[in-house]
Design a protein around this nucleic acid. Sequence first.
DNA 1: CTTGTCGCTAAGCGCTCGCTTAGCGTTTTC
DNA 2: GAAAACGCTAAGCGAGCGCTTAGCGACAAG
Lengths: 207, 207
Amino acid sequence: MSEIAVGRGGGLPGKDAPVGARDRLVAAAVESFASKGFHGTSTRDIAAAAGMSPAALYVHYKSKEELLYLISRRGHERTLRLVRDCAAASDDPVERLLAVVRAFTADHARDHTRARIVNYELSALDPEHLREIAGIRRAIQQEMRGLVEVGVEAGVFHTSHPRMTALALLSLGIDVARWYRDEGEWAPEDIAEHYCELALRIVGAPR
Amino acid sequence: MSEIAVGRGGGLPGKDAPVGARDRLVAAAVESFASKGFHGTSTRDIAAAAGMSPAALYVHYKSKEELLYLISRRGHERTLRLVRDCAAASDDPVERLLAVVRAFTADHARDHTRARIVNYELSALDPEHLREIAGIRRAIQQEMRGLVEVGVEAGVFHTSHPRMTALALLSLGIDVARWYRDEGEWAPEDIAEHYCELALRIVGAPR
DNA sequence: CTTGTCGCTAAGCGCTCGCTTAGCGTTTTC
DNA sequence: GAAAACGCTAAGCGAGCGCTTAGCGACAAG
């Protein structure tokens, strides 16, 4: 009685505190996969955390792996969109790099739970699903590489190995999801700001 | 007949291509834990890869978790030793940083299999074992932090936030274990050399 | 030659896993 | 208002899990 229907995928009421059963299952899976890993999580764990019986999971999803795949795909698509939007927000190489690094870093801290699944549970995906996700990852890397290369060509960045430098920038942001703790002394925005400074140094932009 | 006894812990003949049963089990566990994760690996997987029956594992180790613990502890101790040795090799802050970053990075590429277990399977450890390992990790971080702080105090490094900068340096090296592929175009030494350049920029050392 | 130890295996125990089936009450459809 | 569809649960299936037990052959000590 207390929960009014919001539609099945229901994201209207804010996307936190999921109300529909489908969303509650995803939220429970995200939490569990992130802290115990895909193989360390049972379907009973997920169903219980969503307040349902073990069989309920299979009313909405066809397997545990499908849940992982959906979480992973949405997470990757979200990151690709974030990187592309930030890169498109300016014409100046420095401004673009800063926008991307700032958003990428803050996102990996704020959403470290989802980011851990995205980056560390790839091997648990079906081969076919992994191939699709690998494509999105390649696109993300390509965006970052383009960002660095354009800056180098414009004479604003200076690095002897643009591809590896771009990889290092992504790497730095991804690893935030591994070490970030909510109880830590740094807010996601603090880390993002410091990482902007590091990014400028890494690409060899004049101060 | 072809295998002569080498002693139980046997490391004399080169430490690659383990000959004793104990070592073969560890080698098989390392390979499997790294590619499928601790929970994705069964004791039967490990025993089969070591060419033995499932029960043989328990002749030498008391549980699957003990294997993980031994691998993780040795890996962490090895890294701490590596960092300390490199840091002690010189008095000049720049030289010390370069030695540590070079060795740390190359090691995480060359030994990415073990490094993946060390950095990504912590949550599968028993709480007591995890506490012990967390202590070693803290010591490693402290070494890196000291390295940066000494450089800043000497006026050779320039960074607004030494602690986060030290964390970023470690982070960069650790994440190499995630993305490094043996088939890739860069050798561990190439990556290490480029990361030395990045490290100097990150700490704000004059070129 | 006997006895004890060591490294190992065949068999299997109890349990949990991912997932299925049968069925129930509520809501929607015509 | 009957029938179909929906969201969910209780029960359970077959398989694989971590780990144990009983015992075997090779070798060493006395």
